[in-house]
Write a protein that binds this DNA or RNA. Structure first.
Lengths: 134, 134
DNA sequence: CACGTTGATTAGACTAATTCTAATCTAAGA
DNA sequence: TCTTAGATTAGAATTAGTCTAATCAACGTG
């Protein structure tokens, strides 16, 4: 298994102790944490890190493809170390966010397949360049 | 064509001049504006409205089903007066948000159908209640 | 159709998330 | 080892959104 440092080198990202610490924390985490959660948890084990660096590091790792953003409105930013193609389910009561397999792609498909869940909303956004901007 | 006031009455929402002004502005708008944009535009024609009322009114209209939220991360809240089932396309260069027909539902389908666009990301989120919370 | 109650509106203070600043430090190529 | 571009830092600044408590107004009732 590759270490956080190896991942950084692979993606040509300059290696710093802070970046390795953030990445290491995230790779052992399935909770889709917010920047503040990351800061608090990493800071415990590694007091030499500031909040601004956590935000900067998240951006760097997103750009390098080592993290994925979770698209949840009305909440803070959340990130996912699982960068494979998949989607998310957010519980409106307890707020937890779970991964959903990519195969469950259409709204009706999601509703039918997640039988143990009570799906209320399925929202999709595409991003890219519009006709004018291509 | 129904007036903003008629829409409010239909949904059993108490009619106020502020609510009618916000709804009137939105119904003539396809730009998916942010709360601040709504405040500035409505305030020009109708100076007797405060920022807090714009936020309150948006919530009221969302709850009544007269508006829909657009799910775009790393940006402010945006709302859409088109409450029919559809999704959105955001241009990463100019930032505009366009409506996408509901029929284009799967990621692959979106990519193939939006030929004039350069689709980079298709993101989907389901919301509801998880097993524990049902 | 005036009255009263319930809910709406207001300005501005407050909070939370994120970004900026400018000084200092450090990774890593020469 | 030296150099320099880029990373890190604490804390200030900014921004989006919520809260507060006083005032106001819609609209059902009498």
């Amino acid at each position: 298994m590759r270490t956080p440092t190896q991942h950084l080198i692979e993606k040509s990202v300059k290696v710093t102790a802070q970046r390795a610490a953030v990445l290491e924390f995230l790779q052992g985490n399935r909770d889709h944490p917010s920047p503040d959660e990351i800061y608090r948890k990493v800071h415990k084990r590694f007091p030499y890190i500031s909040r601004a660096t956590v935000y900067n590091t998240i951006k760097t790792l997103l750009k390098a493809g080592l993290l994925q953003e979770v698209l949840i409105q009305q909440d803070t930013t959340r990130v996912d170390p699982n960068v494979s193609q998949h989607h998310h389910f957010k519980c409106l009561r307890c707020g937890t966010v779970e991964d959903m397999p990519y195969a469950l792609m259409t709204a009706d498909h999601v509703r039918k397949s997640l039988k143990n869940y009570q799906v209320q909303e399925v929202r999709m956004v595409a991003e890219g360049l519009c006709r004018q901007c291509r």
